[in-house]
């Protein structure tokens, strides 16, 4: 009796069971084990990425200098030179493809998210876009070759931009659609409730709210397109000269430069390929980081 009274007394004031963390406890052990597993697998997954970056910096960093960006690609067996024409070329081709893919992909997404719903056309477009995201990039090149290069009669920056745009459109469209759909419907209802038309609601509420998500989609598509080589081989080809503002002529690009020089018997060209790889990765990285900062909402700052 006395014992029972003693064991019950603290229960009224203190907690029933101990709340202290115990190391040997099965629950605690399981928890730690899962954390360790998740962290180590993540590190394993990051390993290839960091080893690639490491190699790029070690092998490509050696040639980094201002002249790398201001000089033309050297011919076979020659020393010196840079990759200036390829950097400019890549930016030009990507600009062309963005100009083509952004309006088409974005407006397509607005249709899908705001007007299409479950309509047959919308379902079809969505299905086609999903299939196109998996399109082997070489097919985009072949398509642009058949439609642009053959009809205009020459390899050109424009053809390269078209090939890239085909790769970008589905990504831009699908990611923008999900960004638009992620806008809470209660915000739309608030706008409708104020007497906004559908167009006003889409233009003033839905699109501005979805901009960060849309830009993320565009950046993803850009990053992918920028590294593509195959579609450019059939379309933009390459050029050892500076871009002179003519979109109808072949143009240099970093990815094709890497493709051409990496297998070259001349050591200097191989190191230029490394440098070009480092520059390409850096451009993609810089674009991504800028987009992240540019699209950050005020309340997250």
């Amino acid at each position: 009796m006395a014992n029972a009274a003693l064991t019950q007394a603290p229960a009224a004031t203190g907690p029933r069971t101990s709340l202290r963390r115990t190391i040997g406890n099965r629950r605690t052990l399981g928890n730690s084990a899962l954390t360790v597993l998740a962290v180590s697998l993540t590190l394993l997954a990051m390993f290839p990425l960091f080893s690639v970056l490491y190699m790029l910096i070690v092998r490509g960093g050696a040639l980094l200098s201002p002249s790398l960006f201001t000089e033309l690609t050297p011919g076979a067996g020659m020393e010196g030179g840079g990759i200036g024409n390829a950097v400019v070329g890549t930016l030009v081709v990507v600009a062309i493809s963005t100009c083509l893919a952004l309006p088409l992909g974005f407006l397509g997404a607005v249709y899908l998210a705001e007007y299409g719903g479950d309509r047959k056309l919308a379902t079809l477009v969505r299905f086609a876009a999903k299939v196109l995201t998996g399109l082997p990039s070489i097919l985009a090149g072949v398509f642009a070759y058949a439609t642009v290069v053959v009809t205009t009669g020459s390899f050109s920056a424009l053809a390269g931009g078209c090939a890239m745009a085909i790769l970008m459109i589905p990504t831009v469209m699908l990611t923008s659609e999900s960004a638009l759909l992620a806008v809470p419907s209660k915000m739309k209802m608030a706008a409708f409730g104020m007497g906004a038309t559908r167009a006003q609601t889409v233009l003033r509420i839905v699109i501005p709210t979805a901009i960060p998500g849309i830009l993320t989609g565009v950046m993803l598509a850009l990053a992918r397109a920028m590294g593509e080589t195959a579609p450019l081989l059939f379309t933009a080809l390459f050029s050892d000269y500076w871009f002179e503002g003519k979109l109808t002529q072949p143009i240099a690009s970093l990815s094709v430069l890497i493709y051409n020089f990496a297998g070259s018997p001349f050591e200097h060209q191989v190191s230029l390929a490394w440098a070009a790889s480092l520059v390409l990765v850096s451009i993609v990285l810089i674009l991504n980081v800028t987009a992240q900062f540019a699209t950050r909402r005020p309340e997250e700052q």
Binding site: K186, M187, A190, A191, F192, G193, G195, T209, R297
Partner: peptide
């Protein structure tokens, strides 16, 4: 036009972003 002259405050707060 109906919603322009008849305003509404919803059960859930729904400010714009």
């Amino acid at each position: 036009a109906v919603r322009r002259s008849i305003g509404m405050v919803f059960q859930q707060p729904n400010p714009f972003a």
